[in-house]
Amino acid sequence: MNSRTADRIATGVFIAIAIIITAILAGLFFYIFVNGFKYISFDFLTTPSSNVRAGGGIRDQLFNSFYILFITMLITVPIGVGGGIYMAEYAKPGKVTDFIRTCIEVLSSLPSIVIGMFGLLVFVNTTGWGYTILGGALALTVFNLPTIVRTTEDAIRAVPRDLKEASLALGITHWHTIKTVILPAAFPSILTGAILAAGRVFGEAAALLFTAGLSTPRLDYANWNPFSDQSPLNIFRPAETLAVHIWSVNTQGLIPDVEAVSSGSAAVLVISVLIFNLAARWIGSMIHKRITATK
């Protein structure tokens, strides 16, 4: 076989691979949306789920997913941004910094089921809380923290050095420079990264199985007292999220309409993650434009 023919065959193979990858995505999306949209209705989104009968919705799961995400980000963002600032601005090359990097690497490469087990051990059993939203959020914090730290560190490193020098040369302290010059300049990238991370957290299930649990108590959405057992806002109640719901109805559920519920839930889950992705891009480019725009 001469080299021209081999080259042509190889090119064909690479094009085929690209087509396969595209087809996989197209197939998945087609399946998720075509099957899912049939079942998504206002009712489906607003009725509570059922353990035995058909016709259950995903109201509580949807709320739980967003609420756990919110609590997780509330904990992760300050710590993660602080850690990122430390790594980008304060860490001096050396053993300590290498060790911190190793710790971040360890956290980011842990399987989420292992994080869930750690959560079970510490936030469920040791604290005696049982399955709680807070326990789930703390487990997700472990899962999410490395992403936020890296995003922040990269974003800060991408800020032009002369901006920092300009501020320091005016007699402004390092911390005030970080607060008023570096962080604002890094903000679009940090925000974009945080929203993408939020999408990942939203779809996570394995870390939540043993921390937030597989059930939700009967919720009264008129009850806004965060200490009441029936309040959706109570962070010390168990909470099944949408992703966990898909898993549990498929593997341990008794309801007859498993396929309908999980198709609908999967579509809602994927759409939510898509919205996070699109929002991240859109907000990132918006802010970027606004900051660099010449009026």
Binding site: P160, D162, L163, E165, L168, A169, L170, G171, I172
Partner: peptide, 29 residues
């Protein structure tokens, strides 16, 4: 010290803020 010994760099490096804020930034601090 840097308040009393100021520095201007080779490449103009204004802050990504308004002209007014570029000057008031350090004054406010």
């Amino acid at each position: 010290l840097r308040k009393e010994i100021g520095m201007v760099f080779q490449k103009p490096n204004p802050f990504p803020k308004s002209i007014y804020e570029n000057i008031t930034h350090a004054l406010k601090f």
